[in-house]
């Protein structure tokens, strides 16, 4: 989880930042899913003869969160394409030379 977070903050390339953001989020998903697990349980789909199921609620939340994540990613990537066209670079430290961006 922290790796992703580190990539977001430290990466110089904007695409890499977005990748880091995704890694960061995926790890948070893992946190949620792991708490839904019940020892000896099965996937929360009704089957005859099974009485222990894992908790479906974290699964639902993370389904939502994954979709939210991909939405953010696509907007971020679209921004990067526009930045590339406007500035000719996607390296963070190269903006500082041109006006006061980022």
């Amino acid at each position: 989880m922290m790796t992703g977070f580190y990539i977001v903050i430290s990466a110089n390339n904007l695409v890499k930042k977005i990748v880091g953001l995704n890694v960061f989020q995926t790890s948070v998903f893992m946190l949620y899913i792991s708490m839904g697990k019940v020892n000896g349980g099965t996937a929360p789909i009704l089957v005859e003869g099974v009485t222990t199921y894992s908790n479906p609620l974290p699964h639902v939340l993370i389904l939502t969160a994954i979709v939210v994540g991909v939405a953010t990613t696509s907007v971020g990537l679209a921004l990067i394409i526009r930045i590339k066209r406007a500035y000719g670079t996607v390296e963070e430290n190269e903006f500082e030379n041109q006006d006061d961006a980022i």
Partner: peptide, 24 residues
Amino acid sequence: LDAVDVAFTEASVGAGISTVLMLG
């Protein structure tokens, strides 16, 4: 961890669409 629906989504969205868009 028994989250089959989530795994399905992660595989199609995370590994699929996101990667395609990043490559693009």
